[in-house]
């Protein structure tokens, strides 16, 4: 993350934002705020800084407070920096019944961080999330666009190893790779 980076969408993202705003009736383009915040989060290092939110407000021609209000309501928006790979482990009902706690404590040990923290190298953050609609393939976790299901501790190890060697930032807006491991 460089502090000097100018807050401005790439041409491609800007075109996409314009296209999204046209999906709503005349004067109702504020509806596009969530989809555009997703693009912004993906483009600006995985989180929404006040500067980024102000920029989104300027695109939507609304007050910055309207963007802060929305961004702070939804759990997928990060208002603080996160690691390149945000590992989101489902901790609800069926996943819990089938060992989500084991998955979480295993990752905590392996990465030497607690839920809510980021590794020193900025590669991983860990989060516990609520049911992701994948309960039949519990336990599961989401990283970027991808669902990783029917987890075992070995699978988790392999994934972490792979993410680390790839070193790439993962975003919800990525093209999903294969869902299976």
């Amino acid at each position: 993350m460089s502090a000097t980076k100018e807050i401005k969408f790439s041409d491609e993202s800007l075109a996409l934002a314009e296209k999204l705003m046209k999906r709503y009736p005349e004067g109702k383009h504020k509806s596009a705020i969530i989809p555009i915040l997703h693009i912004a989060q993906a483009e600006f290092d995985g989180w929404l800084s006040p500067q980024v939110m102000n920029y989104v407000a300027s695109i939507l021609k609304i007050q910055p407070i309207e963007v802060y209000e929305v961004a702070s309501f939804y759990s997928m928006f990060n208002l603080k920096p996160v690691g390149k790979c945000l590992i989101e482990v489902c901790r609800t009902s069926s996943c819990w019944l089938l060992g989500a706690e084991d998955v979480i404590s295993h990752i905590e040990k392996k990465l030497n961080i607690k839920v809510g923290e980021t590794t020193a190298d900025g590669m991983f953050s860990l989060k516990g999330v609520e049911c992701l609609g994948s309960c039949g393939t519990a336990p599961m976790m989401q990283v970027g666009a991808d669902y990783y299901e029917n987890l075992t501790l070995d699978k988790v190890d392999n994934l972490i190893h792979r993410f680390k060697s790839e070193g790439k930032r993962k975003s919800y807006t990525d093209q999903a790779e294969s869902k299976s491991v």
């Binding site: 504020k30 969530i34 929305v70």
Partner: peptide
Amino acid sequence: HVGAGAYICGEETALLESLEGKRG
């Protein structure tokens, strides 16, 4: 239209608020 993580947005009026670009 994609949401951004909020169970409450399944409740139909919260969903409509969210679709209008507001908190759910």
